[in-house]
Amino acid sequence: MVFLLRRLGFYVIAFWACITLNFFLPRLMPGDPVSRMFSQVQSQMRPDQVDALRRLFGLDDRPLWEQYLAYIGNIFRGDMGISLSRFPSPVSEVIGSQIGWTLLLGGTSLVIAVILGNFLGVLAAWRRGKFLDSVFPPLLIFVGSFPYFWLAMAALYLFGITLGWLPLSHAFSTGLSASFSFEYIGDVAAHLILPALTIVLVSIGGWMLGMRNTMIATTAEDYITMARAKGLRPARIMFQYAARNAMLPSVTSFGMSLGFVVGGALLTETVFAYPGIGYQLLTSVQALDYPLTQGIFLTITAAVLAANFLVDIIYVRLDPRVRVS
């Protein structure tokens, strides 16, 4: 418990540091990029909106500390300003409209890659040098080293066009509206398969190899020898003694990846015209949409920190050594 509270404290401070940096960055930039940015869109804005933006970027005459407090207050209310490129939608609304898809795609493919990859890694290490171990890692590394674009296009061509099994693009068919119906959920799932499959394909090799290597190191541990000496059944030694210990580093990498899911999968979104944060981030940078860029970065930061905290909680359950007695 003490451990978790200490970690939580650390994350809160990290988040605060990040907000503070976000606040000072535009105010420290040389020249006046903000004014230049405004000139592009000012004509479409109402005076009060211009005023709000100027405040967001410190172009008002209030003292710095007052601006700072107001800024933090806004962040906690979820108010990250107004998007310039998607004017006049607020940044939070733009992010909100995309983040669900990003979480769906990134989360699904991450969970599948992690579970499958780790399982294959455990088996490969346990039967070291046998079929699974000699065929899968090189194969998956080979697949993973293809340019993603190429791989995604090939999958799209094969399953989408030649075989026609799966839809080509977007997250759901045009004309359908969101609902809890079979039709809608099935449609979303069908649209999810190809993009998720390609992500799993390129990332699973890393998980498998990582797990395999830790697992091989773990099987050399003395407690594995003792477990064998105890005459336990091989499956129990493999899972309860070896894999249970070998999965600990994987849990940490899982947390990292989970946080970065929020950043979206730019290439996948591009190839499959799938909605998501990655594409949104790209356009916001291209359009000099500073509020949106900042908002997305802040969201990613928050997600990474939250994911890490989640992993800490899981870790405490998995590894009794970090529990403070």
């Binding site: 541990e221 003395d222 407690y223 003792m226 000496a229 105890k230 005459g231 309860q240 050594r321």
Partner: peptide
């Protein structure tokens, strides 16, 4: 273990930490 059991040289590390 039923007929012959062993206490290892590195008995300190012979217990599963989790």
């Amino acid at each position: 273990w039923r007929d012959v059991a062993m206490v290892f040289q590195s008995a300190m590390n012979s217990l599963n930490p989790v």
